[in-house]
């Protein structure tokens, strides 16, 4: 039973360790597929980028909110 408990704990610990190690080496598409001339910060998870306010006043005005701010 002790060996089993240690085994489960070790498996979880190794999995968590692997997740951090791999996460640190995870490349984002904006890093991997941009060239040195591209000034890309962290685009975030949405399409619209970090400066997006969500301020949509009318239909299809979404893109104007980012350029206006």
């Amino acid at each position: 039973m002790k060996a089993f408990a240690v085994a489960v704990l070790a498996a979880v610990a190794l999995a968590v360790g692997a997740s951090f190690l791999l996460g640190a080496n995870q490349k984002y598409a904006y890093e991997a597929f941009s060239t040195s001339g591209a000034r890309v910060s962290h685009p975030g998870t949405n399409l619209v980028g970090p400066r997006w306010t969500g301020d949509v006043t009318g239909p299809a005005d979404g893109h104007k909110a980012t350029t206006g701010s």
Binding site: Y28, A29, Y30, E31, A32, F33, S34, A38, V40, P43, L47, V48, G49, W52, G62, H63, T66
Partner: peptide
């Protein structure tokens, strides 16, 4: 890219 604010790399 512009219409949908598609990020770099996509």
């Amino acid at each position: 890219k512009n219409e949908h604010e598609v990020p770099w790399g996509i």
